[in-house]
């Protein structure tokens, strides 16, 4: 029983990682219908900025702040310099996806060139070794922090999107772009803001993940793919769905690994997703096209 709980708690900790990644992806998809393949790489770039600044002795708050800003900046620049010109020439949805992939490749390359390719320990205020023991089940301080960050971030975003004028504008832009433009919403700025926010969320995830997974140019590869899957499981256009999807994926994966087969852990996780999607094609909390043919 203790073992079962330990697997579940471990899965929960992993799941909150996926949830943080999924949040950023869902935010972008909601507002632009683009799957952002550069999400992991923007995240990595942000984490490397923080790492470099910590290396020259800046305090955590400053370094992390700069990392968040630089991540947001990359995304906003990408939106204005690449996506807007492409959209002006009527780029399709698919070619916009490939554009994000291009950005990802460039960032990956630059990070590897300037940041080095060897794994690095990432200094962080929360400890990964410090553990809390509750009746034989342990969870590390860092894992708790990640879970907290994921929940807090999604709560703040929920409030931002649902309760503020800015959020209203964001929703309007994502629901119906021409109508929003007609109503005088500066849609381009709103979309740029969405990109920036999504990248910010990504970098937050990256800052929490780097101490857990060790920092190197490819440390977001696996979390990105799983976060992607989690976002879809939860329903790509739903922010709470991203959290739920991430947690379910993490726990399912851990239990499948523990009790069925560790070698097929990833396959089992995807089988669960496929099964869920066949029952609910729009994801757990998604509200998209409901159509039968």
């Amino acid at each position: 029983m203790t073992n079962f709980l330990q697997y579940a708690v471990g899965g929960f900790a992993t799941g909150s990682i996926y949830a943080l990644v999924a949040l950023g992806l869902a935010l972008i998809y909601r507002s632009t219908r683009i799957l952002n393949f550069a999400h992991g790489d923007i995240t990595t770039a942000g984490a490397f900025v923080a790492f470099a600044l910590l290396g020259i002795g800046l305090p955590f708050a400053l370094a992390f702040g700069a990392a968040l800003l630089s991540g947001a900046l990359i995304a906003i620049l990408f939106y204005f310099c690449v996506l807007v010109p492409a959209q002006r020439r009527e780029a399709t949805q698919l070619s916009q996806i490939i554009l994000t992939l291009g950005l990802g490749l460039i960032l990956q390359s630059l990070v590897a060139y300037f940041g080095g390719k060897e794994p690095q320990p990432f200094p962080f205020p929360l400890s990964d070794i410090e553990i809390y023991d509750v009746g034989g089940v342990v969870i590390s301080q860092l894992s708790l922090g990640i879970l907290g960050a994921a929940l807090l971030a999604s709560l703040l975003f929920y409030l931002l999107v649902q309760k503020t004028r800015l959020g209203l504008a964001m929703r309007a832009t994502s629901e119906n772009l021409p109508a929003a433009q007609t109503m005088g919403i500066p849609t381009r700025r709103i979309l740029a803001f969405s990109w920036g926010m999504a990248a910010l969320l990504g970098v937050i995830a990256g800052l929490f993940l780097a101490p857990l997974l060790l920092l190197d140019p490819f440390f977001m590869l696996e979390p990105f793919l799983k976060g992607f899957a989690a976002a879809i499981l939860g329903g790509l256009n739903s922010l709470p769905g991203a959290i739920v999807g991430g947690l379910i994926l993490g726990v399912a994966e851990a239990l499948a690994g523990g009790y069925i087969s560790i070698a097929f852990k990833n396959t089992l996780a995807f089988l669960i997703i496929i099964a869920v999607l066949l029952v609910r094609p729009e994801g757990l909390l998604g509200k998209e096209f409901v159509e039968r043919v």
Binding site: G10, E222, K226, E253, A254, G257, G258, I262
Partner: peptide, 9 residues
Amino acid sequence: RALGSHAMK
């Protein structure tokens, strides 16, 4: 990189 289950195993 998420190796929690592996450690338990």
